[in-house]
Lab assay of single mutants.
Amino acid sequence: MDETGKELVLALYDYQEKSPREVTMKKGDILTLLNSTNKDSWKVEVKITVNGKTYERQGFVPAAYVKKL
């Protein structure tokens, strides 16, 4: 869990989004878990840094590609 009590997951593999509802992640990324009720895909939040500014983006990733921490 992070400092706000949200559950975290670790990306086990790289994943490139295939639709606007998904998010891209790299192996080793730590993501905030938002919903894990679907056995196939979990909703997560990723933090992306562009030019020194951090943005948050929500979307789905394959459940088999992440592990709860």
Rank of each mutant, 00 (worst) to 15 (best):
M1E: 13
M1H: 14
M1S: 12
T4C: 15
G5S: 12
G5T: 13
L8N: 04
L8F: 15
V9T: 00
L10Y: 11
L10C: 12
L10K: 06
A11W: 04
L12E: 01
Y13P: 02
Y13H: 09
Y13R: 15
D14W: 06
D14H: 05
D14E: 04
Y15N: 01
Y15V: 00
Q16M: 12
K18H: 07
S19D: 11
S19R: 06
S19L: 07
P20I: 09
P20Q: 09
R21D: 15
R21L: 14
R21Y: 15
R21Q: 14
E22F: 06
E22W: 06
E22M: 04
V23C: 07
V23T: 03
T24I: 03
M25T: 02
M25K: 02
K26E: 03
K26R: 12
K27H: 04
K27A: 11
D29F: 08
D29V: 06
D29G: 03
I30G: 01
T32R: 14
T32N: 06
T32V: 15
L33I: 02
L33N: 00
L34Y: 03
L34P: 00
N35E: 13
N35D: 15
N35H: 06
S36H: 08
S36A: 12
T37N: 11
T37R: 09
T37Y: 09
N38A: 08
N38C: 11
N38Y: 08
K39D: 09
S41V: 14
S41K: 11
S41N: 11
W42N: 00
W42A: 00
W42R: 00
W42L: 02
W42E: 00
K43Q: 11
V44W: 03
V44H: 00
E45I: 14
E45T: 09
V46I: 15
K47S: 12
K47H: 10
I48W: 12
I48C: 12
T49N: 09
T49S: 10
T49P: 03
T49M: 12
T49A: 07
N51F: 07
N51D: 13
G52R: 02
Y55W: 10
Y55I: 12
E56W: 15
E56Q: 14
E56M: 15
E56T: 15
R57C: 08
G59Y: 05
G59I: 05
F60V: 04
P62H: 04
P62T: 05
A63K: 06
A63M: 03
A64P: 06
A64K: 13
Y65S: 10
Y65N: 05
V66P: 01
K67A: 10
K67G: 06
L69I: 14
L69T: 03
L69F: 09
L69Y: 08
